Deep mutational scan, measured.
Amino acid sequence: MTSCHIAEEHIQKVAIFGGTHGNELTGVFLVKHWLENGAEIQRTGLEVKPFITNPRAVKKCTRYIDCDLNRIFDLENLGKKMSEDLPYEVRRAQEINHLFGPKDSEDSYDIIFDLHNTTSNMGCTLILEDSRNNFLIQMFHYIKTSLAPLPCYVYLIEHPSLKYATTRSIAKYPVGIEVGPQPQGVLRADILDQMRKMIKHALDFIHHFNEGKEFPPCAIEVYKIIEKVDYPRDENGEIAAIIHPNLQDQDWKPLHPGDPMFLTLDGKTIPLGGDCTVYPVFVNEAAYYEKKEAFAKTTKLTLNAKSIRCCLH
Results as ranks from 00 to 15, higher is better:
296 A>D: 15
294 A>C: 04
209 F>E: 00
202 A>L: 02
288 Y>K: 15
245 P>D: 05
147 L>Q: 03
59 K>Q: 08
238 E>R: 10
18 G>P: 02
159 H>A: 10
288 Y>I: 12
132 R>F: 06
97 N>P: 06
195 M>I: 04
29 F>R: 08
233 R>K: 12
158 E>S: 07
64 Y>D: 08
240 A>R: 12
60 K>I: 13
196 R>G: 03
101 G>R: 09
9 E>G: 11
229 V>F: 03
92 R>A: 15
145 T>E: 07
273 G>T: 13
166 T>K: 13
215 F>V: 04
250 Q>P: 01
181 P>D: 00
173 Y>V: 11
23 N>D: 15
18 G>N: 00
303 L>P: 01
254 P>M: 05
145 T>F: 06
87 P>S: 10
207 H>C: 14
149 P>D: 06
163 K>T: 14
111 I>N: 01
93 A>G: 15
54 N>F: 04
41 I>T: 05
287 A>R: 15
15 A>M: 00
99 L>E: 13
222 V>K: 01
127 I>N: 04
95 E>S: 09
162 L>C: 11
114 D>T: 06
261 M>C: 14
24 E>P: 00
116 H>M: 14
260 P>N: 05
313 H>N: 10
279 Y>T: 05
230 D>P: 15
305 A>T: 04
234 D>T: 11
269 T>G: 06
178 E>D: 09
150 L>M: 14
119 T>Q: 04
273 G>M: 13
147 L>T: 05
312 L>P: 15
177 I>S: 01
121 N>I: 02
48 V>C: 09
13 K>G: 03
101 G>E: 06
57 A>F: 06
195 M>F: 01
66 D>R: 05
152 C>L: 12
90 V>G: 12
166 T>G: 09
178 E>H: 13
73 F>N: 11
272 L>E: 04
24 E>R: 02
226 I>P: 01
274 G>R: 03
60 K>Q: 11
93 A>Q: 08
291 K>P: 09
82 M>I: 15
212 G>T: 02
8 E>L: 12
48 V>R: 01
273 G>C: 07
211 E>G: 15
255 L>K: 05
15 A>F: 03
129 E>N: 11
300 K>F: 04
21 H>D: 04
101 G>K: 07
31 V>R: 00
133 N>W: 03
211 E>W: 07
14 V>H: 00
